[in-house]
Design a protein around this nucleic acid. Structure first.
Lengths: 130, 130
DNA sequence: AGAATAGTTGAATATATGTTCAACTATTTG
DNA sequence: CAAATAGTTGAACATATATTCAACTATTCT
């Protein structure tokens, strides 16, 4: 007994025996695709070594582009490009003072996300890779 | 008055006027690079639409590879490759039953991280991009 | 006004990464 | 044992992305 949805499910997965009830239940409870897509985009922004370092620096203090570039030993251009990514994700804000641009964090949730991330790392450092 | 550290800072950034006190203070309080690197790697794992969908599915139920492939309308191979990534990040675990492999979440912090991520998205959906 | 400097930006390049494809293993079933 | 199927894996390919480089804007200072 196969429903049409069942046929659709098999379109690409190449499976014949699946747990239809489970799949349907999960499908009904999945958040909207736009939300999941935005979530992936947000984590993609955090998923870069340079940007993580920038965010951690801004946890501690407001900094200008030169400060960050000096701290990380990178060019102003590279930092500026990354700050644009963080800006577009609404994660940092800035204020101008003369020709200097000071950047700071623009989100309360970031610290929680990072803290949980570090907790995960701390807890899984004992485990071996499979 | 420039210290040697100051000279080092200027190596690549191309700046002459930086806030040395701020940079030094931030530098002293940065977490170890290994931690920040691992954190970026963790977020990189979350920074993919397919993997986010897989994680959300496993929030709801334990699922086999075919279930997930059917749910997402993707091939078993693509799902298996992504499950390997999630496995290596200690985010999912699995049990075998015959030729079926059931996957489930292997981390308590994931739900918190995702919840904070969604909160950030909800809060910044009013803002316009700059 | 002119020089110097903070910062931005677009193009180019090199690297990273997600999916596909085909081949493979392992387990079940007839 | 043979066929079928769940799942894995490596190579190939296409796309995404981080940094560099050069050119540019804007602001300060003499």
């Amino acid at each position: 007994m196969k429903s049409y949805e069942m046929e659709d499910m098999e379109d690409r997965c190449g499976c014949s025996v699946i747990h239809e009830d489970v799949v349907n239940d999960v499908r009904e409870h999945m958040p909207p695709v736009e939300d999941l897509s935005e979530l992936a985009e947000l984590f993609k922004v955090f998923g870069d070594f340079t940007r993580v370092k920038i965010v951690y620096a801004l946890f501690r203090a407001e900094m200008c582009v030169c400060d960050i570039a000096a701290l990380l030993g990178m060019t102003k251009s590279a930092i500026s490009h990354q700050l644009r990514v963080l800006r577009q994700a609404h994660l940092v804000k800035f204020r101008k003072d003369g020709r200097t641009v000071f950047y700071s964090l623009d989100d309360d949730h970031v610290s929680t996300i990072f803290a949980q991330g570090l907790t995960h790392i701390a807890h899984s450092e004992n485990h071996s890779n499979q």
